[in-house]
């Protein structure tokens, strides 16, 4: 699409109105059965993530075990949805997760800044896909976006999508750098039109990350895209969601914005590392009736 066509997509978002809607989601009270179901759903939606310079194969293998066995002391727990690693660790993860159903996602395209050439970004993607990644989490070029070069952003996403082949493409907007909800909305629309399978808030390296107003704005963009095209796009808030309560409120938001179809890890993910243990603590509390301590839950 041309830059002018992409400019024409801009739609206004009223930030205060979004915050009021979010505040209302936050008044939803999730208790008893609904809480247990919600917590299990949340656990099953987690992309367990390690994206550090000091990542090693050992670290990745340990995390993969946790992904498949979140807390064996509790019966009937689902696995998490996926593990999310750098491209160089994809092979390790694929091997460790074989047969478990847990997906392997790789960040690519010069994550997290995205400041590199198209050539290198494509190569980065190809490395991940060739190593067996089920999903690719790319970053958009925020500099180009903020300078108004929307067609560059669009073309780049489309190119990466092509390079992904069968792998599903998650497009990270890095909303903390986009500043306004109007920009979040515009970037979401560009990403979806360019072929994103998922849109994702953040790299986790920039704060603020997945705030509820940002996530709601993106969910509403997904809804409009679905209304318009009939095509479902997934949503992944990432960064800053470490508590069960916040995860449940995110799920409330999904349920009441997009409906039942999105309440599965095929269409909704949490990018998080410490959320899993908090969810497990809450599940244990529901099962045993006692408040829990972190020493009783494995850190991987």
């Amino acid at each position: 699409m041309t830059n002018n066509q992409l400019i024409a997509l801009k739609r206004p978002i009223d930030q205060v109105g979004v915050e009021e809607r979010v505040a209302r989601f936050q008044t939803r009270s999730i208790k008893t059965e609904a809480k247990i179901q919600g917590l299990k759903m949340a656990l099953n939606m987690i992309d367990l993530t390690t994206l550090e310079g000091k990542d090693t194969a050992g670290k990745v293998r340990q995390m993969c075990y946790k992904a498949m066995h979140p807390h064996d002391a509790l019966p009937d727990l689902p696995t998490v949805a996926a593990v999310c690693v750098y491209p160089t660790h994809v092979a390790t993860a694929v091997d460790a997760l074989k047969g478990s159903g847990v997906k392997v996602a790789a960040v690519a395209t010069a994550f997290p800044s995205g400041n590199s050439s198209r050539k290198i970004k494509l190569a980065d993607t190809k490395i991940a896909v060739d190593a067996g990644a089920d999903e690719v989490d790319m970053v958009i070029s925020r500099g180009e976006f903020l300078s108004g070069n929307y067609s560059f952003v669009f073309d780049e996403i489309a190119a990466i999508k092509e390079a992904c082949g069968k792998a599903r493409l998650k497009v990270i907007l890095e909303t903390g750098e986009l500043s306004t909800l109007d920009n979040v909305r515009h970037a979401s629309d560009i990403a979806m039109l360019a072929g994103a399978d998922f849109i994702k808030t953040s790299t986790g390296k920039i704060s603020p990350a997945a705030t509820m107003p940002v996530t709601l704005t993106m969910l509403e963009a997904i809804r409009d895209f679905y209304y318009e095209t009939g095509k479902m796009v997934g949503m992944k808030p990432a960064g800053g969601i470490s508590k069960s309560k916040l995860a449940l409120h995110n799920l409330v938001m999904v349920k009441e914005t997009l409906g039942d179809a999105w309440l599965s890890n095929e269409w909704f993910r949490f990018g998080a590392s410490s959320l899993a243990n908090d969810v497990l603590m809450q599940l244990a509390k529901q099962a045993e009736g006692r408040y829990q301590g972190l020493d009783y839950f494995s850190k991987d």
């Binding site: 208790k31 809480k35 759903m41 009939g230 409906g259 039942d260 309440l263």
Partner: peptide, 19 residues
């Protein structure tokens, strides 16, 4: 003609009573 798109606000995850 566009495909009719309809969201399903069903009972997949109902909130329990919270009196």
């Amino acid at each position: 003609k566009k495909k009719e798109t309809k969201l399903d606000f069903g009972s997949k995850w109902d909130y329990s009573a919270a009196p």
